[in-house]
């Protein structure tokens, strides 16, 4: 089976990995790097459970080939909390009750991180636009929106 060798930076660490050419970034992260926080809910771009930040932008890891990640900087959910200190969005998700089964949570949190970086004080419509690609089947989304608004306020006042 054909292989590719890619060098990429994941959560601040630069690594070189040789893996199957047809493997997606999602399975490179999960199988080759053991980063299981990035989830597979559909493998076709529809659910957003696999969302990671690539060069700062949310992408579906299930639609990026391993070779396409060459030279890129990836942040996964495991890379968000620094030294045990949770990211304000992670704290807000906990506090606002935005987590039920949690399978959507890593992807949602990362989409929200990207949003707040571009739009520190987003409107509700902007939140909805930014999170359209992240399905959640448990919460009905209300508490997720509340969490993002709470985190925006917190970051704003920090």
């Amino acid at each position: 089976m054909s292989q590719v060798t890619v060098t990429l930076t994941v959560n601040g660490q630069t690594q070189t990995i040789t893996t199957d050419a047809h493997k997606t970034l999602l399975y490179l992260l999960r199988d080759d790097l053991g980063l299981y926080g990035t989830k597979d809910g559909c493998s076709e771009g529809e659910c957003g459970a696999c969302t990671v930040l690539m060069d700062g932008r949310p992408v579906n890891a299930c639609l990026v080939l391993a070779g396409q990640a060459q030279g890129r900087t990836i942040i996964t959910i495991e890379g968000l909390a620094g030294d045990g200190e949770l990211h304000p969005l992670q704290r807000a998700f906990i506090r606002s009750g935005a987590v039920q089964c949690g399978f959507c949570t890593p992807g949602l949190v990362l989409s929200a991180v990207a949003l707040l970086e571009r739009q520190p004080d987003p409107t509700e419509a902007q939140i909805r636009q930014a999170l359209t690609g992240n399905l959640c089947r448990c919460t009905g989304y209300t508490q997720i929106i509340a969490a993002i608004q709470a985190a925006a306020r917190e970051v704003d006042h920090a």
């Binding site: 926080g37 990035t38 996964t76 959910i77 906990i94 949570t105």
Partner: peptide, 15 residues
Amino acid sequence: ERLDSRAKVTGGAAY
């Protein structure tokens, strides 16, 4: 706070 929410927001919860 739910017992599992910290693991779930950090990607540590094992499905």
